[in-house]
Design a protein around this nucleic acid. Structure first.
Length: 411
RNA sequence: GGGUCGGUGGCAGAGUGGUCAAAUGCACCUGACUGUAAAUCAGGCGACUUCGGUCUUCGGCGGUUCAAAUCCGUCCCGGCCCA
């Protein structure tokens, strides 16, 4: 009956594979979902990031699934927490952001995920909250009161702190506050469920503890898998050079997916698309993983940018990279038109000002190593001068994937 | 406050008077091979250059020296131990 259908929907979400952990248990969570009561979900985002990445998208897609089931979902912007920095990234203190910057970033994010998340639903929109709203109001006494719910030993249980203790590396007092702050978010919003990545479970559990102590409420924590190569276990991350950010253009996104290692295929299919799990397995059986990857790239571009654009991005990709054609007229990936050049321009200066190389030395190296070509012809000399007669309106290629149309200013 | 160890390129980490623009690994870039995958191989990886060199860099400042990341002074910062 009706319940059966709901069960199917719920199980589709729970069993898809993008959710890795449920605390206290999956059964408990499932029962609550079946209970029919509207629940409040949230996921937090570090406000310092300029762009969201596919890992965020994975979580948002899940929240959107729950939103469609009628639950309340909150997109929490960690503008206050962002100020102290999550100890998980032990590197230097983060730059404090003004509320204007945070708003600007959010405007960018919103644009990046507007096609996967519904902020404008008439009856149950994706809600937006900023945690400075309540964290900024706490006074010292209240903070101490919160802190009294935890012991130093509990904090030290966190692997990362433990590791730093053993390595005799510093742990700052304020880093202990991070789980507290994140935990207090749960209290302030009175949520039923927090969604986070598995790396955030410790913080999320602090919220669970606080909810139990302060509100006598059993908050559920559900955690998404981190997107990682299933063969090597290597995480997708910016520092590995594999991070895929959502501010990419359609064709760049397509390319970024194609550049992922094969082991990323299933995690991305599962986490970042809603292609049926059985169908995903069919893709995984394909003889050439490239074809599965193309299907994945298409689907992801479609989700974020729409079907028409995805089709174009795919054609562009195949022509440019598989067939090695020069993208003379790529409608999506429009090459930049450099207009500021007078008649004669040294090729290295051009590359630097066009953003194709970091310095003239870098440009020289790229040319020396055969990485630069103009209309398919490899540039042999770094002393080459670009002229309107020879080079106007031609396409320069640097490395594998940078193209720029050389365009001289009109006299 | 005392003792002690330390602060080097994006990261990790050698170097302890010249041969150091600084080993090595990771990351990164270019090429080959490919499926813009992985792996592998080759080259590169401060800036400028008339390709001879020039300039800037090893926590800050000052000094010794023909010559300093390396020695001295001083200051700043951090770890650990003791108080």
């Amino acid at each position: 009956m009706k319940n059966t259908e709901l069960e199917l929907q719920i199980d589709a979400i729970l069993e898809r594979g993008s959710l890795a952990q449920f605390l206290p248990t999956k059964e408990e969570f499932r029962n609550r979902l079946l209970g029919g009561k509207k629940m409040r979900f949230y996921m937090g985002f570090d406000a310092t990031a300029k762009a969201l990445h596919v890992g965020h998208a994975q979580g948002l897609l899940i929240l959107e699934d729950f939103r469609k089931l009628g639950h309340e979902v909150i997109f929490l912007i960690g503008d206050f927490t962002g100020m102290i920095g999550d100890p998980s990234d032990k590197s230097s203190a983060r730059v404090k952001q003004t509320s204007e910057q945070v708003k600007e970033n959010f405007a960018l994010w919103k644009d990046q995920v507007k096609n996967i998340v519904n902020f404008d639903d008439a009856t149950n929109p994706f809600q937006i909250k900023y945690n400075s709203e309540w964290l900024g109001k706490l006074n010292f006494a209240e903070v101490l009161e919160l802190a009294s719910n935890f012991t130093v030993q509990q904090m030290l249980e966190r692997d990362m702190f433990d590791k730093r203790m053993k390595e005799e590396r510093p742990i700052y007092i304020h880093e202990f506050m991070y789980p507290l702050m994140q935990g207090y978010d749960s209290v302030a919003m009175d949520v039923d469920v927090e969604l986070c990545g598995t790396d955030q479970i410790f913080n999320a559990l602090a919220g669970r503890t606080l909810m139990q102590k302060l509100k006598n409420k059993d908050k559920i924590v559900i955690a998404t898998t981190l997107i990682a190569d299933e063969k090597t276990g290597v995480l997708m991350s910016k520092s590995n050079g594999t991070g895929v950010f959502l501010n990419l253009s359609a064709s760049d996104l397509f390319g970024a997916i194609m550049a992922q290692s094969d082991g990323m295929l299933r995690p991305l299919f599962i986490g970042c698309t809603r292609i049926d799990v059985k169908k995903v397995e069919e893709y995984m059986q394909l003889e050439n993983p490239r074809d599965a990857k193309i299907a994945l790239a298409y689907e992801m571009v479609r989700i974020f940018h729409g079907a028409t654009v995805a089709q174009i991005a795919q054609e562009y990709f195949i022509n440019t990279f598989s067939k090695k054609e020069i993208p003379t007229d790529a409608p999506v990936h429009t090459p930049k038109w450099i207009e500021a050049y007078d008649a004669h321009e040294n090729i290295m200066d051009f590359m630097v000002s066009a953003g194709l190389s970091l310095s003239k030395g870098d440009a020289r190296r790229k040319i020396e190593q055969g990485g630069v070509s103009i209309d398919g012809e490899v540039v042999k000399s770094y002393t080459m001068i670009l002229t309107p007669e020879n080079d106007d309106d031609k396409i320069m290629k640097v490395g594998k994937r940078s193209f720029i149309r050389i365009k001289f200013a009109k006299k």
